[in-house]
Design a protein around this nucleic acid. Structure first.
Lengths: 168, 168
DNA sequence: TATTGTTATACTCTATAACTATA
DNA sequence: TATAGTTATAGAGTATAACAATA
């Protein structure tokens, strides 16, 4: 009874389920490791890593929220948590007084450094171990395209407020 | 030892980030749709879908927990929620009095049916739209291997009680 | 008026531990 | 004693709406 197109073929279904389950298992394992090694949630790690990757260790809250979290209040919550622990600082932006700039601290970088090795070890063990170099190349290529496409495609029920700013 | 390679190459990093971000965006979009169309969380959908897929619409709680959820109490919680809504029933197993068997109801199947089209539409739009047939084949192949590998690899800190083993 | 960010709040989800009951 | 499941409970995380301040 495949009336309309309400159906996927077996391969599509397989890709979907495997994607969800693999990412779910990976995420779970990584979260455990981050918690054990650095008392960090995954989101917190993403924030620290994003800041640590920036040239000056800083980023505007909005940009952080765009890349990592889905709601502004969620980011505020996480930033507060990190600030209480002294892993980031928040200061008003000199250029735009409305903006807040988050900056990773030395302690923040230290936590990041403490957490990285185990993080990478899990990726090696869980994600890359069963893959060939060609697999990894293909996976990166395919998923990068998917991600870029998803970023461009606005959510069905676009929030009344926040826009995805990739439209530039 | 073997803490030697505390670094990944650019392609590995790309594959990892793309995997996390793509699955995260997809998950988010799907959760939104499931919520809107059927007032279901993703886990609840997974439970219903698993039951709906079973020959008799039933499964033991433990088996459900193994596939979908990470803790028993979490499954109990979700099963209760679904039961309150009349989407599943729970009955003691005749074979093993310790076990509980969850069964999807007609209403449960109806919700599933109501939710499916939109679910599939999102997958088409977000996940498959930018991919060729060959991409999808490759993705399914690679991620299936990854998932199977992850399933076999036990979590680092195994819970004192529940083993994640499919020791059947 | 639009944008940036915070606060208050409510809610969902998850996990741990203690507990019951059956094998 | 080991397994299956529930309950109590506590905590983390998220989102919405109201709010304040700047552009």
């Amino acid at each position: 009874m495949t009336s309309s197109p309400p159906s996927l073929d077996a391969t599509q279904l397989g890709a979907y389920f495997a994607l969800i389950e693999a990412s779910s298992l990976l995420r779970h394992a990584v979260e455990q490791q981050l918690q054990d090694a650095g008392d960090l949630s995954y989101v917190q790690f993403q924030l620290l890593a994003t800041l640590g990757d920036a040239p000056d260790g800083s980023a505007r809250m909005t940009d952080l929220a765009d890349g990592v979290v889905y709601s502004r209040s969620g980011l505020t919550y996480q930033a507060q948590t990190l600030e209480k622990r002294g892993l980031v600082t928040r200061t008003p932006s000199p250029e735009d007084e409305r903006s807040t700039v988050a900056t990773i601290t030395e302690d923040g970088r230290a936590v990041l450094a403490r957490v990285f090795p185990g993080h990478i070890a899990i990726l090696e063990d869980l994600l890359f171990a069963p893959l060939t170099r060609a697999d990894i190349d293909a996976l990166a290529d395919i998923l990068t395209r998917v991600r870029d496409h998803m970023r461009q495609t606005p959510p069905r029920s676009a929030a009344p407020r926040g826009r995805r700013r990739t439209s530039g």
